[in-house]
Amino acid sequence: MTTEDRAGVIHDIGYRPYRGPRVSRWGIITGLLRHGALSTFGFGRSGKAKVLPFALLVMALVPAIVFVGIISFLGLDSELLNYAGYQQVTSLFVIMFVAAQAPVLFTRDLRSGVISLYLARPLGPATFALVRWASLVAAILAFVVTPLVIMFVGGLAAGTDVGEELPRWLVAMGGAVLLAVLLATVGAVVSSLTTRRGLAIGGSIVVLLFGLGVTAVLQEVGNEQGQETAATWLGLLSPFVLVDAVQHGLGEATTSFEAPPDDAATAAGMLLVALTAAAVGLLLLVRRYRGKGSR
């Protein structure tokens, strides 16, 4: 083919090679992270995909708005603003959000086969899996932090004292981060095991909701039997109970469960065990994605 032909082609058919700058590895990671977190809320997907996450978010916000309303209009005291205990109040919605939306980032990739495109892109399987997980952490964090922000800002507007509220609020914010990390790990591991969305949702609900219920019951039984220490450590079975224990033991927040740790050391120990478990979960996730490349 002559140069003239080539030039003619460029004018007629218009294939233009790309000569511009390319994004660094880190740029690709942040882009993928943002895209993943947004698609968890249905952005960039069909209109239908936005209904469930936003419906759940609204429901999870109702108590916060009600609390702020009560304080503003009835002038009740700010004890009502139990930041640290908030996720327990809305745990059903949080669990449903994780169960329904984690498959968007994991099951959906496996089911549609798009995973083989991602793995053939620069990032590679380990980084891709971790970025997917981080997207889920970010999405869950947005979900659990929004009501805390509404309560805090709304409370201040209604005349609560910053100095009094801020430390309690920060403890709850720390708890929210821990909760997001743990829930995302459970959601990621469960929903990367199957290509069936229903199975992934069901599996996450079983693990998280039943985990919460069973832990609460077992702790009560343990206390009755005089096994307080065992009851406390059983908190590891549910991210919600564990976060409550850590907030109580390390941040002196009021607890919502039966067997909170008595001392900071126990709480720190539980935190360490939970983070180790999460790390193991992530390792499994990465291994699974490494294997996927060969399909």
Partner: peptide, 15 residues
Amino acid sequence: AVGYMPEHDCLPPDM
């Protein structure tokens, strides 16, 4: 540097 088109399905249906 390489573009790849796999043999099997690889498109998310909801996009």
